[in-house]
Simulated scan of single mutants.
Amino acid sequence: MFSAKFLLAALSLAAVPSSLTLGGELASPSITACTGTINPPDGCATISVVSASCINLTGTLSSLNKAVSWAQVPDGLVCTFFQDRDCSNGGVNAHDVAVLEGGTWDMSDVEGIGGPQNFSDQTSSISCSPL
């Protein structure tokens, strides 16, 4: 039979949010972007995101610039994929952004500001925020 101390310890561990690391610091959420397929993974990279920060696909992420064909966004996040660097877009009806909520996305058929669009091989920067 389990002791009360053991059960309390088990329950307290179960109550810790999965976004915490063992050190108690919040872990950054991450998205996956692929230049090939997402399943099986081909040309995929995991990108840590910080709320409302712009991520340019440069440096170690330069292989993804204008090459993202699949993306996976965790539940609870909304990410905007921009055609231009520095997370800039052309305005209200522009076709240079794709807005993705939690799920796995084929970038050839995603939701943009002006409606459904093909955004494959268009992304140069990304910004994510919690829903």
Rank of each mutant, 00 (worst) to 15 (best):
F2R: 15
A4T: 13
K5F: 10
F6H: 13
F6V: 10
F6R: 13
L7D: 13
L7G: 11
L7F: 14
L8Q: 15
L8E: 14
A9V: 12
L11M: 15
A14I: 11
A14C: 14
A15G: 11
P17A: 07
L20M: 13
T21W: 07
T21F: 04
T21I: 02
G23H: 11
G23Y: 10
P29L: 03
C34G: 04
T35V: 07
N39T: 09
N39K: 09
C44V: 07
S48P: 11
V49D: 07
V50G: 00
V50F: 08
V50W: 08
S51L: 06
S53K: 15
I55Y: 03
G59R: 04
T60K: 07
T60Q: 09
L61Q: 04
S63G: 09
L64W: 02
A67P: 01
A67R: 05
A67S: 09
V68P: 08
V68H: 06
W70Q: 10
A71L: 00
Q72T: 12
P74I: 09
D75M: 07
D75W: 08
D75N: 14
L77T: 02
L77D: 00
V78F: 04
V78E: 03
T80D: 01
F82R: 00
Q83W: 06
N89Q: 09
G90R: 14
G91M: 04
G91S: 06
N93K: 12
N93F: 14
A94F: 04
H95Q: 15
H95P: 13
D96P: 06
A98D: 01
V99W: 04
E101H: 14
E101Q: 15
G102N: 05
G103A: 03
D106I: 00
S108M: 09
V110E: 04
G112F: 00
G112L: 01
I113F: 14
Q117G: 09
Q117M: 14
N118V: 01
S120T: 06
T123P: 00
S124G: 03
S125K: 08
I126C: 03
